[in-house]
Each structure stands twice: as C-alpha cells, then as structure tokens.
Design a protein around this nucleic acid. Structure first.
Lengths: 206, 206
DNA sequence: ATATTTATTGAACTATGTTCAAGTTCTCGC
DNA sequence: GCGAGAACTTGAACATAGTTCAATAAATAT
C-alpha cells in the first residue's frame, strides 16, 4: 500500500530536484516537461500526477531557493556585534547568494502565474520571512520607531538592496563586476542607515 | 515605387502600437502574433516582414516606453531649486510612471532574449540615458566625487529606487498602497542622500 | 502588354503545456 | 493464492504559439 506512495514521493522529490537543476542551468524558460520526464524516468503526462502544473513546480523550486537564501542571510547575521554592520553583511550575503544562484534567484521574481491565479499559502509564507532578518538589527538602530513602521522600513531597505543587486547583475546594461557591486552596496547601505538614524534624531527635515 | 515602402512603414508603426496596447492590457505574456496580425489587418506571417521576430517587437515597444519614462523624469527635474528635493521628485516620478504603466514598465525588465542573442545597439543606448537624470543633482550634492564615482553612485541610487518600486508594486507580496509607497520612497531617498553627504564630509567611517 | 522582380499570404512545421481514454499495476476480501 | 475493482501510469492526441516558405498576387520595368 505504501509502496506506490513512497514511489510517488520519491518521484516527486526527483522531479523538483531535476527542475531545480534545469532552471539553474538553462533559466526559467529552459524548463521543459518532456525533458524533466526523461530525466526522472517517467512519461511526460506523469509529471501531472506529481504536480498540478508547471506553476506549482516553479513555486516548489522557489520555496527551496528561498529556504537556502534564508539560511545564507541567517549565517550573515550571526557573530557581528554592530547592528549597522550586521545589516551590511546581510546585504552583501544577499548579493552573493544572487550571484551564485543567478538563475534560481531570478526565477523567484521572473515567474508570473497566469492572471488572477492566486499563490498558495505555503509560497506566500516563505517570502515574508525574508524581511525578518533585517527587522532586529534595524530595531536596535531606530529605537524610536514602532513595530509597524519598522516593518515597513525593513521592507524598504530590503527592496533597495534587491534593486541594486537586480540591476547590478543584469547582463543587458553594463554589467558591474561583482567586487565593485559589493562595495557599492555596502556603501549605500551604510549611507541609508546613517541617514535614517540622523533623520530619526532630527525632526525629519524635509 | 514608394507606395509599398510607405505602406510597410505605416503597417510597421501600426504593429508596434498594437503591440504596445496589447502588452499594456494583457501583459508581456499576452502578446500574440496572430492577434496582432488580425488587429492591423494582415496575415500572421506578414508580421515577419515588419520585424525580425517578437523579440524585436518587444524591444521596439520597450524603446517607446523608455522614451516616455525619460520624459516623465525630465518633467520631474524641472523647476525645483533644491537638488536634494529634485532627486526625491525624480524617484516619485519613477514610481508614478511604473504604477500608471505597470505592464509596459514590467515588460522592460521581464523580457529575456534567448540565450546569447545580443541586444541591438539602439536598445542599449536608450537604457543608459536614465541614469543621467540623477547625475546632475547628485553632482551638486557630492562636490568631492569624481565623474566616474558619481556615475556609479547615480546608478546605485537609481537601482535602489527601482527595487522599492518593483517590490512595492508586486501583487504577490503584501501590496503596498501607492500613497504609502510614495512616502516610503521619499523618506528613504532623503535618508540615502543625507547619509551619502554625511559620509562624504566625514572620512567615511566604516 | 508582358516579363521580372518584389511583397504577401496562409498553410504547414515545430515546440510545448496539458488532457484523457486505454492499459497496467496494485490492493484487499475471500 | 486469486480475481474483481480501485488506483496509477502511459503516451498519443489536443490546443496554442512562434516561425518558415512555396505559392500567389502585386508592383515595376521594359
């Protein structure tokens, strides 16, 4: 009885790993059900016994990528006493992760579900976890801010770094060499933090 | 003799406009050659007499979008004496443009050419123009920096704002209401600028 | 007016996600 | 054990798309 269940689970796991490998090697657009089926040794149609459609598959791969990214950021935030430098390290870690997992990281943002098909909950949850890395060090630096406001600022800071990484790693424009990009990010993160602190202490001079 | 040439040019122009409308309404993935052909009144295959392939079509639409974006940013930078507030206004203008032209703006970044097919020059040129809006006000604020360094910082600042807009307008995560997003962007841009100025005046305390 | 060049057509080709009727394998009551 | 019924797997077939190209039509030159 459990025999086919086990087999299914094994196959499903193989499928997701194969999809991950394929995206990493050929990009999101290079993911093909027939190639996947061949790799895991089943019929093309059998893929749809394991996942509902390719959207789900991409989301499952994304979930794994987000978990690894989360781990990378967790590592970056340990053992650094200064909250300011912790934030810098997290930003650099984000940049490094994106560079080392370029296609998988891009897939997180490139993928679009067909209109109005909602994301499953388990996928949404993953994503919201990312901001939490920034929250604690930021709270230490901006003691006057409330939880709500801090959450928003954390999100903004994350987004700003994301933008620098996204455009910095884009091949189309002048590609920035990675060391230069890391330096730029560190500089702008420090500037943002300093600016936020200054503006918190002063009465927000617009 | 010029008869068919004229007709072709007219058709090509119609095609690009139809593609623009289609992307704006249905997103980049909703662009279909057969629908385009029907709209401009020619055979499906005739599309390939007007452009080499859909890649070129998307790029041509992108070129128009970039031009309109450029205009919007130009408008934002006029008539504001303070360079700092000029930068804030440019950032807000970028945000507003993205919100008002969401699908077309997204298409600029979502589109990926098939591997190793290079962008045509006319397309690359367009994109580099965007940073130039930021350059002048930034130069006024950071007089000690050289041209090279300023260019990099301008790019970083642009990228950071881009990231805030990109993630802020993303439906998947908690969508930020537009007014809140504008406020956030204004706040973080001011913080970045203040931080950059502070760090330029001090001896860059890392 | 006719021949030659050029442009346009739409059917056909390829690739790809998805479905489903038919075949196969497995399970469970006897 | 074994056979009926449930569950699973298959791969051919379908729908949709981008792209090509031989055949047709139009335009131009002689």
């Amino acid at each position: 009885m459990t025999k086919t269940l086990e087999r299914r689970e094994k196959l499903r796991s193989d499928l997701i790993q194969a999809a991950e490998r394929m995206i990493a090697e050929r990009g999101l657009a290079g993911l093909k059900t027939r190639d996947l089926a061949r790799e895991i040794g089943c019929a093309n149609g059998a893929v749809y016994n394991l996942v509902a459609d390719v959207d789900e598959l991409v989301l499952r791969v994304g979930s794994r990528t987000l978990r690894r990214l989360d781990d990378a950021l967790s590592t970056a935030e340990t053992g650094e006493p200064s909250p300011r430098e912790t934030l810098v390290r997290i930003a650099i870690a984000y940049c490094d992760f994106a560079a080392e997992n370029l296609q998988l990281w891009r897939a997180l943002f490139e993928h679009r579900m067909e209109t109005d098909k909602a994301l499953p909950d388990w996928s949404v949850d993953d994503q919201l976890q990312l901001f939490r890395h920034i929250y604690k060090p930021l709270a230490a630096l901006l003691p006057k801010r409330g939880a709500e406001e801090l959450g928003i600022t954390a999100r903004s800071l994350f987004s700003a770094v994301h933008g620098m990484v996204a455009l910095g790693l884009e091949q189309r424009l002048v590609a920035v060499p990675l060391p230069a990009l890391r330096k730029e990010i560190a500089g702008l993160v420090r500037a943002m933090i300093d600016g936020l602190i200054t503006r918190e202490q002063a009465a927000s001079p617009d």
